[in-house]
């Protein structure tokens, strides 16, 4: 038991520390790398909770795909550090104000948090249903039976977002020559070649 407690505090501290480094690192590439570290530590926290499926999905989706694209974009940016720092002072008041408002809201929400009596009762009964089902199967049962429609709607929303992104960025540039593989494959020697018998000194 003590090992998991130590592990929890280790991963939790690392998550917070790397999350802090994300916003305080000077180099944006380092920020993204710290973000990845934060994702990893949260995945480890999920494992400690026994939610191994969510932990793996977190790594696959966020670290394996989203953060790669972040890193990709940030590396391509041409960053002028002097300009960045100048902008920092300029935007500090507005940024600080927004941060302060968010902090106050968070404090209000957390301090006003009250559990309903039923929830406390359910929580005090403990004993989650012990079954042979693995984590993944339990999630599958819930999502595809109880929440099937909501799941479908979420998928539809993502599809719309994806099509929207493609429509917004897709532009057909004139004058670009593209390879048509089907045409190349169906091209036969007879279509493009002719064998001529050329008399010497006559030319074609």
């Amino acid at each position: 038991m003590i090992i998991s407690t130590i592990a929890f505090y280790l991963f939790a501290a690392m998550t917070i520390a790397s999350a802090f480094m994300v916003i305080s690192a000077k180099n944006p590439v380092h920020s993204v790398l710290y973000l990845i570290l934060a994702f990893f530590n949260s995945a480890a926290l999920f494992v400690l909770l026994g939610a191994e499926f969510i932990a793996m999905i977190l790594v696959v989706v966020y670290v394996g795909a989203v953060a790669v694209l972040f890193l990709f974009v940030v590396m391509m940016l041409d960053i002028n550090f002097a300009e960045l720092r100048q902008g920092f002072l300029q935007y500090l008041p507005i940024g600080g104000l927004i941060g302060l408002i968010l902090l106050i809201e968070l404090i209000l929400v957390v301090s006003g948090w009250a559990l309903s009596p039923e929830a406390i009762q359910v929580g005090s009964q403990v004993s989650p249903v012990v079954s042979d089902l693995t984590n993944t199967e339990q999630l599958g049962h819930i999502i595809y039976t109880d929440y099937a429609y909501l799941f479908q709607i979420a998928g539809m929303i993502l599809l719309v977002a994806m099509i929207g992104a493609i429509v917004l960025t897709n532009r057909s540039r004139p004058g670009v020559r593209k390879q048509n593989i089907a045409r190349q494959v169906y091209r036969r020697p007879e279509d493009s070649m002719a064998v001529r018998k050329v008399e010497p000194g006559q030319g074609v």
């Binding site: 590439v29 191994e52 696959v60 790669v68 984590n135």
Partner: peptide, 25 residues
């Protein structure tokens, strides 16, 4: 012998790109 072995492998193999992209940068 974990329950989500395939996902673990998929996750690890999707991280392989980091070594390369960090090296390049």
């Amino acid at each position: 012998d974990i329950n989500v072995g395939v996902l673990y492998l998929f996750a690890i193999s999707s991280l392989g790109v980091y070594g390369i992209i960090i090296a390049g940068w």
